[in-house]
Design a protein around this nucleic acid. Sequence first.
DNA 1: CCCTCATTGACCATTGCTGACCTTGCTGAC
DNA 2: GTCAGCAAGGTCAGCAATGGTCAATGAGGG
Lengths: 156, 156
Amino acid sequence: MASLTDHIENHLNKLLAISTRSYVEIQRAELARKFACAPSQVNYVLSSRFSLARGYLVESRRGGGGYIRIYRIASPQARNWAKTLSRMDAGSFDPVQARHFLKRICEEKALSQREAQVIKTLLQDKHYRGLDREDKINLQVKLFKATLEAVLRNSY
Amino acid sequence: MASLTDHIENHLNKLLAISTRSYVEIQRAELARKFACAPSQVNYVLSSRFSLARGYLVESRRGGGGYIRIYRIASPQARNWAKTLSRMDAGSFDPVQARHFLKRICEEKALSQREAQVIKTLLQDKHYRGLDREDKINLQVKLFKATLEAVLRNSY
DNA sequence: CCCTCATTGACCATTGCTGACCTTGCTGAC
DNA sequence: GTCAGCAAGGTCAGCAATGGTCAATGAGGG
């Protein structure tokens, strides 16, 4: 069911695709008018669909002549994923960010759709019902890291 | 005596039959309205008639613009694995057999080496240290099944 | 009379959307 | 220079729109 958020996401992705630069520049109010929604809806789309973990960078300026720029950032190399992975621990782990990370390396072609799907499954809280929060997070981190490392090991 | 459940099952099967895709997409509330029943009745139909054991997969999303998708697993072979999977539970689960199962579907080219590697990783006991034996087995079963379901869902 | 399958409702979780209020940058009057 | 005023964009709490779970209850068939 394509929601408004989905439509706006699509629109922005199209703009990015046809842009000759590495970014696309929009005006929040104008975009809101085009989709007949509240301006803050644009912020919602940006934060839920164009986050850093998904490989985008958003930059903006307020005031007269203000704008919002959305950059598609260049792909990190495989060794950087390892670094990112190693930085993850129970303390800072966030399943949402982890999912974004998966989507990202999937887009980089380092992971197939199916592989991503499999690993994403491990991040679903429902499988860990009955455990306390700490055990759950701990397992999610461990399995997430272990499985990704297994994949990356096998890609050479 | 055709029960409400039977009627809904029939309806969904018709939709599946005429669908051009490998799945049908519905909205729980809407379907409940059409059959004048409680929304949770739909969940009952899904779990009792469109289970993995019967060769179906169900995927859903909550929130505004949410949906429920029902997939019919296309290949008879895959339906067979699904049945095997659905029979696995904490009582009978055995990591050794699970590995054999992986090996088999790997040989049948339904699973890549890398995918198998990922799933094998989560069968390793070492990740579950600190949990009681029962919790461990429980998690291994759940994750094993859930990840393989993810593969099935993506094998079209 | 039981036992199993079917139904329901109360309560919960997740995602999307909006409006009220806040912050920042610019420009012009004085 | 500085202060008022307008023109952006930012934040966040809260409501809306979905679907999920589970325990209690009902209905039929043996």
